[in-house]
């Protein structure tokens, strides 16, 4: 088997370990302590924020910023799909005019 295939399989095994690891580490708690519960409740917003913030600051210009603002405002009133489509439309339209 080629080196490439071995690298892929080793990467896959380690990736699976990250996906079960957190659960294995916590499964020894019979009941989740309140502070840990509060921390776990914050996981989705905290992680997903880090996937947005640096891109908005470093990899974006007027078109991307407008898309983010419009999408953020739509998200206050409407569902995920409406929010996503409006952001994408603003982005694609503005990119035709601004680099």
């Amino acid at each position: 088997m080629s080196t490439t295939a071995w690298v892929i399989l080793a990467g896959a095994v380690l990736t699976y370990l990250t996906r079960i690891g957190g659960h294995l580490a916590l499964s020894r708690f019979k009941r989740v302590p309140p502070r840990l519960e509060a921390a776990l409740d914050a996981v989705p917003a905290a992680v997903l924020t880090t996937l947005v913030a640096p891109d908005v600051l470093f990899a974006a210009g007027p078109a991307e910023w407008s898309a983010i603002v419009v999408a953020g405002l739509v998200a206050l009133k409407r569902g995920l799909l409406a929010m996503f489509i409006s952001g994408a439309v603003v982005l694609i339209v503005l990119r035709q005019f601004v680099g």
Binding site: P44, A45, L48, T49, L51, V52, D55, V56, A59, A60, E64, A67, I68, A71, G72, A75, L76, L80, M83, F84, G87, A88, L91
Partner: peptide, 13 residues
């Protein structure tokens, strides 16, 4: 830039 927009939507949710 589609994924950052999608992830923002999830954060807002």
């Amino acid at each position: 830039f589609l994924l950052p927009i999608y992830f923002l939507g999830l954060v807002m949710g």
